[in-house]
């Protein structure tokens, strides 16, 4: 690990000032991802700005929904949150382990690095880590990698469960920079790799995530998260689905289906959502939506199994919601 200048500001303004004009500065929140990236020299910031002293904790409820502070921990245990947004709390509980969730924050979770094994081993070529270096995964092991939205330059998937739920809930991140506040839909936060996989997200240099806003939507309370992984717990998703459905008189009016573990960003399955609208949530509709969710998949031989997992997570989530 290279050494760095460690700072712990007490206000958002001071934090922004400490990174302004320092392109090699990085924020650290829970540190559960960044510390390993520093240790393995995947990231080598010259300045580390510890944001744990900032007042960005807690939930704030209003008629429009809930505002979750960027430093709110992933272990958040709030009955109102679980009732209003079951998909979010289930996604969080399915992630990492209790010890990690006690430290991991909402901001850090959204901006965590990919888990492509080559990205985390600097002895391998990786375009995401070193622009133009090549992609070791292209001729390597792709079992865990993406089937949607990938490019020749990068086939990694975004590992966050929480982000997948937040996209299904139409959530927005609130970002502060020296030029003021802006809001970015969580669905636009992560970039598809194209030719520039190192440009991972839509934050401008020096911007800080201060909160996530989750709106009140008619489908939010009837929602769930289904995650398939290699073992029962403490593992990243091979494929997952965040699903939310709003019905009136037994007919689906609106729905969200967002997939995790299969794309460089939370992957909205728009075709599957269309397959639900105007239909009754019966077995035939569930099957049609599960099939539609695989539209556009471009697997490689070693990750083609994920196509079937996508059908499986969507089918299981919709079946569970249909029984409610």
């Amino acid at each position: 690990m290279d050494t760095f200048d460690y700072r712990r500001p007490a206000s958002v303004r001071e934090a922004l000032r400490l990174v302004a004009g320092h392109p090699d500065a990085a924020f650290v929140a829970g540190g559960t991802d960044l510390v390993t990236l520093l240790r393995d020299r995947v990231r080598t910031p010259g300045r580390l700005v510890d944001i744990n002293g900032l007042p960005l904790d807690g939930l704030r409820w209003s008629r429009d929904g809930v505002r979750i502070g960027a430093l709110c921990r992933n272990a958040v245990d709030d009955p109102r949150l679980a009732a209003a947004y079951p998909v979010l709390v289930r996604a969080l509980r399915s992630g990492a382990s209790p010890q990690i969730r006690n430290r991991a924050t909402f901001g850090g979770n959204l901006l965590q690095g990919v888990r492509c094994p080559y990205f985390r081993l600097p002895e391998f070529a990786c375009n995401r880590r070193d622009p133009g270096a090549g992609c070791a995964a292209a001729g390597g092991d792709g079992r865990l990698l993406g089937i949607f939205g990938t490019s020749a330059a990068c086939v990694a998937v975004h590992p966050s469960d929480c982000a997948v739920a937040l996209v299904a809930l139409d959530a927005t991140v609130v970002v502060e920079g020296t030029r003021g506040t802006r809001r970015i839909p969580v669905g636009d936060l992560h970039r598809l790799p194209g030719d520039t996989p190192h440009e991972e997200h839509a934050l401008r240099p020096g911007e800080l995530v201060v909160a996530v806003e989750v709106p009140a939507r008619p489908f939010a309370a009837r929602s769930t998260y289904v995650k398939f992984r290699e073992r029962a717990s403490y593992a990243f998703a091979l494929a997952s689905a965040a699903v939310a459905v709003h019905s009136e008189h037994g007919v689906v009016r609106d729905a969200r289906i967002c997939l995790g573990g299969v794309a460089p960003k939370p992957w909205r399955a728009h075709a599957a959502e269309r397959a639900l609208r105007g239909e009754r949530l019966d077995a035939a509709t569930v099957e049609a939506a599960a099939e539609a969710a695989t539209a556009g998949a471009r697997p490689r031989p070693d990750n083609a199994y994920k196509v079937e997992l996508v059908r499986g997570v969507v089918r299981r989530a919709l079946t569970e919601l249909g029984e409610k």
Partner: peptide, 14 residues
């Protein structure tokens, strides 16, 4: 990682 049969040479550690 070599055990995952990666068909590339090792890049020098930065």
């Amino acid at each position: 990682a070599g055990g995952l049969s990666v068909g590339v040479g090792l890049a020098a550690a930065p």
